[in-house]
Design a protein around this nucleic acid. Structure first.
Ligand SMILES: [Mn+2]
Ligand SMILES: [Mn+2]
Ligand SMILES: [Zn+2]
Ligand SMILES: [Zn+2]
Lengths: 147, 147
DNA sequence: TCATTTTTGAAATTGAATTTCAATTTCATT
DNA sequence: AATGAAATTGAAATTCAATTTCAAAAATGA
């Protein structure tokens, strides 16, 4: 149960535990995936119509600060959030037709990236790698539509 | 001289060659690097104070469409443009302190990316890879400042 | 309960990106 | 050189997500 971790962190930071924050965290974790603020908001509102957009916005930033959420900015511009995956970093394959997002890890690439940084005497803090294209499902649909 | 290529392309598309477009292309090419619209605009204005921001905006999009400019959206959010580099694709190392941008190519990584896509039955159209960190110059400055 | 501090949510603001539209310019054709 | 259709320009307006403001409400702990 992440809720207790959250409450503990909140307390440690001198912040307050509220009904809204708990509801938002809960909804966010159940939602999974890579969701935009408005997607998260409309889900939160279903559970409690009194919760405001601003509160969802602020809570997602808080979760990001606490390490429970990870912020992503893919090429479409809208900021997305995903529950932080334990320990591992991953990158993304994104379908430009249907928006499907597949996660992947590649240690060989990560090692090569470190090599590149070293060669240019950079100290890397984080990186971003996204592959944009078309998933198999969408490719099939297009083929059929083309006849 | 890219200007003639540009005029030829403009003509082929049924568009018109104007003083503004020529000035913007010229300034953009001389500027080099990865420049934001406002950076390009303020340079263009030096050459001709009558040219409007909107025209610079539209011309950079036109250049992008024609393949003469490449649009980049790094993590800072502001859209940047760079003259399209012939033939080769490249990725970027970015210093979070001074904004310095270093370009690199790595065929091994590119091949691994193709492998990942294939394994997930994706057809890739383009990708983006950026390594964010601190350049050597900035690291040295920080060290000195820390005493 | 009381006092202090934080949080909430509606509304306002920001800032880059984009669109609108009337005036101007281009350019092929006289 | 003059004409006129089509494209372009630039100032202003609009959009839209992100962020800030601020007064009212809620949480915490003495
Ligand atoms: Mn992910
Ligand atoms: Mn570049
Ligand atoms: Zn798809
Ligand atoms: Zn630097």
């Amino acid at each position: 149960m992440k809720l207790n971790q959250f409450k503990a962190r909140i307390y440690k930071e001198g912040l307050k535990s509220t009904r809204q924050r708990e509801e938002i965290l809960n909804t966010f974790l159940n939602l999974s995936g890579h969701k935009s603020l408005s997607q998260i908001f409309s889900q939160v509102v279903k559970a409690d119509p009194k919760i405001g957009y601003t509160t969802v916005y602020r809570t997602l930033r808080l979760l990001t600060r606490l390490g429970l959420a990870t912020q992503r900015k893919f090429a479409d511009g809208e900021t997305r959030y995903e529950p932080t995956s334990e320990g591992t970093h991953h990158d993304h394959l994104i379908c430009l037709d249907c928006g499907k997002i597949i996660e992947f890890e590649d240690q060989t690439i990560e090692a090569l990236q470190r090599g590149i940084a070293q060669r240019h005497r950079f100290k890397i803090f984080h990186h971003r790698m996204e592959l944009y294209g078309q998933c198999e499902t969408c490719r099939r649909k297009k083929r059929i539509a083309h006849r």
